[in-house]
Amino acid sequence: MIAIIDYGAGNIFSVKNALDHLGVECELTSDKQRIESADKLILPGVGAFPAAMEMLAASGLADTIREQSKQKPLLGICLGMQLLFDKSYEFKECEGLGLIKGYVDKIDDEGLVIPHMGWNKLVYNHDCPLFSGLDEDYVYFVHSYKAFCDDKNLYAYCTYGSRVTAVAGDGKYVYGTQFHPEKSGSVGLKMLENFAGLM
């Protein structure tokens, strides 16, 4: 069972709809025990970093996620990916979950339309099991902040002005996608299916 962590942020039903469509067993939950008994975790999220982090910290979910990510696959989506990093500068400096080394800051290349909204093409930087059976293809992004990390943690990027971290990970159980796989048509569904198939 995949636990989709419900901490009051974003359109989490989209992720559930996509997994239901794939026939993958999943549930929306904020319950610590359900999260501990799940095989895998998805951390969704749309909105602002500080508010999301506050909710995760206040509910104790931040610690549960940190601990569980050492023993089972975790996928952060959009803001959920950004939360995996050490910190963010959205509105103010704010600590993240600290599962991937790096930080999140505003997209500030000159002359760009912000938010980065729409379909952009992935460039693979390292092998990643999420890419299994997929060529570099277009996926759906919508965000105004982006993550900065070491090359070894950068699994895929796209170009919008400069490089945008599209898929990142810790080399072990932790994965994050800046784009929305649940809104990226057949390509995104395949990536979710690949995540569901991880051991």
Binding site: N11, F13, S14, H21, Y140, V142, H180, K183, G185, G188
Partner: peptide
């Protein structure tokens, strides 16, 4: 629609309040 179409969905027309926005997003609109 959100159960079988996995691209972004926008809903317009008659949205007048924050509650209208909330229930539209909760129904699956992006």
């Amino acid at each position: 629609t959100a159960k079988k179409v996995f691209v972004p969905l926008t809903v317009g027309g008659g949205i007048a309040t924050v509650d209208d926005i909330r229930e539209t997003l909760r129904a699956g609109a992006d």
